Every structure is written in C-alpha cells, then in structure tokens.
Amino acid sequence: MTPETIPQAMAALAKVDADIARALPQVGAPAARARERGFATFFSTIVSQQLSVEAARSIMSRVNTLLPELHAKAVLDVEGQALRDAGLSWRKVEYARGLAEAELAGTFSADGLEQLSDEEVISAITALRGFGRWSAEIYLMFSLGRTDVFPADDLALRVALGRLKRMDDKPTPKQARQMVEHWAPWRSVGSLFLWHYYRGEPL
C-alpha cells in the first residue's frame, strides 16, 4: 500500500462498489500508512495493547532507553522487574518474554514472515501469547504491505462500513467480511478508506 497504488486501488474499488464511488469525492482517498517490520514492532504491539497512543509512546521511550538494541536476546537478558519499572504490566512482561523465547527458539521468526502467505502469517502470529487475529492482520497490512486484508474485528472499521452502507447498526465481523468480499484484491486499501471515512464522514 504505497502512495502510488492507493489511487489505482480506490479507482478499482469505486468501480465495484457504488457506495465507495459516492463517498470517495466527499472525503477523498486515504493516505498511505506503514510500520517497521521485525521483532521491535511486535514488542511495541504488546506494549500498546489497551493503552492510549500517548501512554504507549511514553513506555516505549523508557524501554528504548533500557534496551537501546531491542531484540530477543536483550529482552531475555534484562530483569523482568526492569521491564515492569519501564511501565509494562506483569502480563505484558510475560508476553514479551514469550515472544523473545519463541524468536530465539526458532518457533517464530519475525523476519521470516514476509516469505509466508497471509493465512500462514496469521497462524504464526496468533500462536504467540498475547496476539490475536486483529494484531496479525494489522501487521500484514502495515508492516508487510499486503493489499488484500480486512481486519473485521476492528470496531471503527465496522462502524464505518455500517454508515457507508446506510445500515441501522454496525455489521458483525462475519457480516463485514462477507460485505467486502467483492473488494478483493484491494481489501486493505478498502480498510484504509473506511478508517478515513470514519474520521471524515460528511454530515
């Protein structure tokens, strides 16, 4: 999902979905978004769970001071109490150490994910404690740049889809996935558009 592919994708989505064709001129195309790949991003994902962006950023700043090189061995070498003092809950310390142990044991490879299919990536990530399908799909979209992912468990995404489709209520995750099947192979860009629409929906 690059600035170059988004206009192409939005044009394709507008052709197959009249509601997108109606809404696109009103709110415009979404901006491209990307995140780093690798172990540090998974660690940051653990930190940010159920926290505000500001709180997570503050904790990660302390973690980066504690561990200037954020990799699996460094996480296991540092005392759990030091991570707790940086702001992680004991549960998140447990998740972070589990991630590091899996990486060092070779049962999980953050750098090897790009060689896998979307479903294989989801299976690999959700096998880790503390990571659900939503986290895996977000990694697919923003770190691996996969173009056909729809994280239907995202509440804002479903609220926006319900509004776009002029429904009385938001669809369930299962309904949402069915409703956007025809967006393939651009469901990631369709998701970006829904988040954009959620923030900028015209009155």
Results as ranks from 00 to 15, higher is better:
1 M>F: 13
1 M>N: 12
1 M>Y: 12
2 T>V: 01
4 E>A: 15
5 T>H: 04
7 P>K: 07
8 Q>T: 12
8 Q>A: 13
8 Q>Y: 12
11 A>H: 04
15 K>V: 00
21 A>K: 13
21 A>P: 06
27 V>D: 07
36 E>R: 15
36 E>K: 14
37 R>D: 09
38 G>A: 09
40 A>M: 07
40 A>Y: 06
41 T>S: 14
44 S>Y: 06
51 L>I: 01
52 S>L: 04
53 V>L: 12
53 V>Q: 10
56 A>P: 02
56 A>L: 01
59 I>M: 07
66 L>R: 01
69 E>D: 12
70 L>E: 11
73 K>F: 03
73 K>D: 13
75 V>N: 02
75 V>K: 03
77 D>H: 08
79 E>W: 00
80 G>T: 00
85 D>A: 15
85 D>C: 00
89 S>I: 00
90 W>F: 11
97 R>H: 09
100 A>M: 12
101 E>R: 15
103 E>S: 07
104 L>T: 12
105 A>K: 15
111 D>Q: 15
113 L>W: 12
114 E>D: 14
118 D>V: 09
121 V>F: 11
123 S>N: 09
124 A>F: 05
126 T>S: 00
127 A>E: 11
128 L>V: 08
130 G>W: 01
130 G>T: 06
131 F>E: 06
135 S>A: 14
140 L>Y: 07
141 M>F: 08
143 S>W: 01
144 L>C: 10
145 G>C: 08
152 A>S: 15
153 D>P: 02
154 D>C: 08
155 L>H: 12
156 A>S: 13
159 V>P: 00
164 L>F: 03
165 K>F: 08
167 M>L: 15
167 M>Y: 11
168 D>C: 00
169 D>H: 13
169 D>S: 14
170 K>C: 00
171 P>W: 10
172 T>K: 12
173 P>K: 10
178 Q>N: 14
178 Q>T: 12
180 V>E: 03
181 E>P: 01
182 H>K: 13
182 H>A: 14
184 A>W: 00
185 P>C: 07
186 W>I: 07
186 W>F: 15
187 R>T: 07
188 S>V: 04
188 S>P: 08
190 G>M: 04
190 G>L: 09
193 F>Y: 12
193 F>K: 05
197 Y>G: 09
200 G>F: 07
201 E>G: 04
202 P>D: 11
203 L>A: 15
